[in-house]
């Protein structure tokens, strides 16, 4: 566990040493801020629903960009070899990197707290959905991070890692909007696989164990797959 902390610290610091962090955060804030406030006064409602409903879509682009370098870079410069000949296990490395990217996503969401703070001044804000929304956002970010880490573990090329990660996240976001393509017998399965509906439930302020379990299992499966992908390279 100690090793996980060391790797976490290093990866988290790395984000802020390079310009990537600031670029990604700025783009994220500009995009979400624009979509949120451009319609906020038209709806005339004191909710964050507009901001939260777009989050799965924005995360599908932003999160893979955050995670794409985590393993690809190590593989392409060969530092993974150096890292693994020190007393750490591959699981330590994967968890350290995973927590670093989740922490980074949380840091990225932090400035958006000023949206609800602004709303307090002009209307009655229901805090339930806000708290649920942020919890859901972190869970969603975690699930997408795990997927991004997996796509980063299977290739040395960061751009390919980004595209694969984005494709998977995008599919997971949109799959429950394409239900009419699937036969009726597997509809419920497909519906359960979509990330959007689970996120929507949580962001309404309803913390259902099924939704939480969904995100946790996505994280577990993707991180386990990354472990297998890294194992395959030896």
């Amino acid at each position: 566990m100690k090793q996980v902390t060391h790797i976490f610290k290093k990866e988290f610091r790395d984000y802020f040493v390079s310009p990537i962090a600031y670029i990604v955060i700025s783009i994220f804030l500009v995009v979400t801020g624009w979509f949120f406030f451009s319609t906020f006064f038209l709806y005339d409602q004191a909710t964050l629903r507009n901001f939260l409903s777009l989050l799965p879509l924005t995360f599908s682009f932003v999160v893979p960009a955050v995670t794409m370098r985590l393993f690809s870079e190590e593989l392409s410069i060969g530092s993974y070899e150096v890292l693994l000949t020190m007393p750490v296990t591959p699981v330590d490395v994967i968890l350290g990197k995973f927590f670093a990217s989740v922490a980074f996503i949380a840091a990225m969401l932090l400035p958006t707290l000023c949206y609800p703070l602004t709303i307090i001044f002009i209307g009655q804000l229901d805090w339930g959905p806000v708290i649920g929304g942020y919890m859901g956002a972190v869970l969603l970010g975690g699930a997408f991070s795990a997927i991004g880490i997996f796509s980063s573990a299977i290739t040395r090329n960061q751009i390919i890692a980004f595209i694969i990660g984005m494709a998977i996240c995008f599919t997971m976001t949109l799959i429950d909007k394409m239900l009419f393509f699937f036969p009726a017998s597997i509809l419920s399965v497909i519906n359960y696989l979509g990330a959007d509906s689970h996120f929507k439930n949580i962001s309404k302020g309803i913390i259902d164990s099924r939704d939480v379990l969904y995100f946790l299992s996505v994280m577990f499966v993707a991180l386990y797959a990354s472990r297998l992908a890294m194992q395959e390279k030896k």
Partner: peptide, 8 residues
């Protein structure tokens, strides 16, 4: 060829 983290 000492593969180390370039940005550190």
């Amino acid at each position: 060829s000492a593969p180390l983290y370039h940005s550190m």
